[in-house]
Simulated scan of single mutants.
Amino acid sequence: MFDCLRSRTLTTAMGEVAYVTNELTAARDCPPLFFWHGFGGGSSHYEWSAVYPAFAAEYPFFALDLPGWGASEHRDQSYTVAGYVDHLLECLDRLTTEPAVVITSSLTAAFAIQGAIAHPQRFRGLILTCPTGLSDFEQDYRQTPLAQIARQPYVDTVFYRLGVANSLSVQSFMANQQFARPSRISPEMVATYTEVAQSGGAEFAVLAFVRGDLCCDLSRFLPHLTVPTYIVWGEQAKLPPVAVGQRLARLNPEAIRAFEVIPEVGLTPQLESPALMIALIDRYLGQLLASP
């Protein structure tokens, strides 16, 4: 079933990135789909690996590891909001000539929104799960105890080894923060996230994230969005909770065409309930293609 999938790399301004693609040619009625993962210890395109194969026979797609994450290059460099926004746009420019549907989550969704505001012609639509800038409505994540700990020299690397880059920490985060039902966590998920978190240089991007270097106030940007956008939120998501998502959605009801809450699901519906996520994406793509 998955014989059409290919692993590829692309050299970008932030380093070499790894991605999976089916190498189909885009057409007007089947726009390219770009899948990007959210941020957290051990994150990679694996986050969408139970979803993107469902679209491989019909849509050209690219499931990418962001710079500093997954199998992409882990440079010891400055990781910033502007750098990641530019990176998303660079990948769109390099990998397709057609307006794309970007499917992503969490903090990466905030970067995609900023990219879509700056260059709306590059986007056919956005499909987002739990989008957040982590400092929305002027709430400064950088003042939290976790961010303060990650700013301390030497303490930050100890925190990474003990609090992120081991299977017990991965399992605990998934059970307490990521999933509504821990019974849905598979050994494969834990092993994959742990392996990525333990890869050389993985701490550079993760610590930039935990320090708050990548935070932004999404409420400042959303009113300026014009690209058709569909938002999915896990009812049991904790950071950020549904109430924040609903407040964000109310900032731009014209661009945000759907806000769907999935019961008994946490922060990553694409991992916890992939079949339902596939059905929602399929519905949203149908609506996008039917609109002028």
Rank of each mutant, 00 (worst) to 15 (best):
F209S: 06
V51G: 07
A290I: 03
A118L: 11
I117K: 00
L214K: 01
G40M: 07
V81F: 03
V101Y: 03
T144H: 14
F159T: 04
R75M: 12
G125C: 02
E260C: 01
E195H: 15
T11Q: 12
C215I: 08
A27V: 13
A249W: 10
L214D: 01
I117N: 00
G245H: 03
Q77P: 03
G234N: 03
R257M: 06
P182Y: 15
R211I: 02
V232A: 14
G163S: 06
R122N: 06
V170Y: 03
R94F: 04
A249H: 10
Q178N: 12
L89N: 01
A165T: 11
E264K: 14
F2C: 06
P67R: 13
Q152C: 11
P274R: 02
H45G: 09
F159H: 05
L92V: 05
F259L: 11
S106T: 13
E235K: 01
G245P: 12
S44D: 15
L239D: 14
A165H: 08
L33I: 09
E90G: 06
A116S: 09
V102K: 11
L248I: 04
L168G: 06
A18R: 13
F2T: 13
S291V: 10
S78K: 07
V244M: 12
Q121S: 12
S44Q: 15
H74M: 04
G70C: 02
Y154L: 10
S169P: 14
A258P: 02
I185K: 01
F55V: 12
F179N: 00
I149E: 01
Y79C: 02
D93F: 03
G83S: 08
N176W: 07
P153W: 05
A175G: 08
V206T: 11
A109R: 04
E138I: 05
T268M: 13
Y230W: 10
E195G: 13
Q152L: 14
V170L: 01
T12K: 15
